[in-house]
Nucleic acid binder design. Structure first.
Lengths: 182, 182
DNA sequence: GCAAATTAATGATTTATTCAAG
DNA sequence: CTTGAATAAATCATTAATTTGC
């Protein structure tokens, strides 16, 4: 899906709602109603913001926010912070979306290669509004119990080209590492 | 742009991805194909590494690398150098990210609070307000030409509960922004 | 065709990080 | 080691869509 917009262009579709025509009360922008809830972007505002985003703008500077806001104010009420938040949210959600896809598909598809027929497709949905990865490992981090104090030197040139993937075949490492040395 | 975030924690996530399901080599390690390409960390591995990092570990000593590697080998193929590189890269990218952010968003929030709306804008294009969805605006993104000096700073917790909705009532915003800074 | 009820989007806040100054 | 800057992630909250009963 286009990263650019997720669900923004859905806003007020049918009737050009912008107040331009007259206060008709149109509806959306919160103009007529006097209702001072949260900012409710106009279709045009969203379009511009989206275009900016798609053009690569991710985190506008103060100046930019200022200008964008000013420009968008033509279409309806808007404040700088709205622009700021919009970019923050849009960026974050775009990212989130991408991430989710990776989890759902990528991962699944990945192994799909060898696991041909299966019910993977279905599983894709189950992760709806939940967090993709929720493995609550309580495992701690580092051993250190031993002694520590690393050797100052040793360039470590680790080189070990062995293609195994067996993973040391231990029974089950409890993972009881602790970062005492920190 | 970076969007990729750190990229680490994206790997395989959802459900226990570890080889459990399939052939020993199964799926995660990316080695399903016998291909000895680059290391492909498992979700668990990444988690542990990340936790270590978050716990303050930035440059593990040889011993530490060794231990970490051993522990992580349970989850899948891994070599010491992978651990080493991971920390190296993670640290670097984290920094990089931060640096970039500084340039971009640094002051955004900072001064956001005081930005109201005003300034100038020129008239260039006009967008027919008739068709919300059909307008093929050629408008570009950001100006930058101007100047705008940034005020030193201030916390400003943007709060501006003014219920206006008038929208600056300007005549017609040309929208002539350009993203030169990109 | 409406309007209450339900669900999906998405604007606005809060919280937890990371790096870096002092 | 402590504190300051500055998010981005997580979360809260409100508005619009959509569904459902009449």
């Amino acid at each position: 899906m286009d990263d650019g917009m997720s669900g923004f262009y859905i806003k007020a579709a049918g009737h050009h709602v912008n107040n331009g025509g007259g206060t008709g009360g149109g509806g959306n922008n919160g103009n007529s109603g006097t209702k001072c809830g949260r900012w409710n972007p106009t279709t045009e505002q969203v379009k511009v913001l989206t275009d900016l985003f798609r053009s690569g703008l991710r985190t506008p500077s103060t100046d930019q926010i200022q200008k964008i806001s000013t420009q968008l104010s033509f279409y309806g009420k808007i404040e700088s912070k709205n622009v700021f938040y919009w970019f923050q949210n849009h960026k974050a959600r775009e990212r989130q979306k991408r991430r989710k896809v990776s989890v759902d598909e990528k991962d699944v598809l990945r192994r799909l290669g060898k696991i041909s027929s299966k019910t993977h497709f279905l599983e894709v949905n189950h992760v709806s509004s939940d967090e993709p990865e929720r493995v609550i490992e309580t495992l701690q981090l580092f051993p250190l119990n031993s002694f520590e104090e690393q050797e100052p030197a040793e360039k470590l040139r680790m080189h070990a080209n062995d293609c195994r993937e067996t993973a040391t075949t231990f029974s089950h490492p409890p993972l009881d590492l602790r970062l005492s040395f920190l």
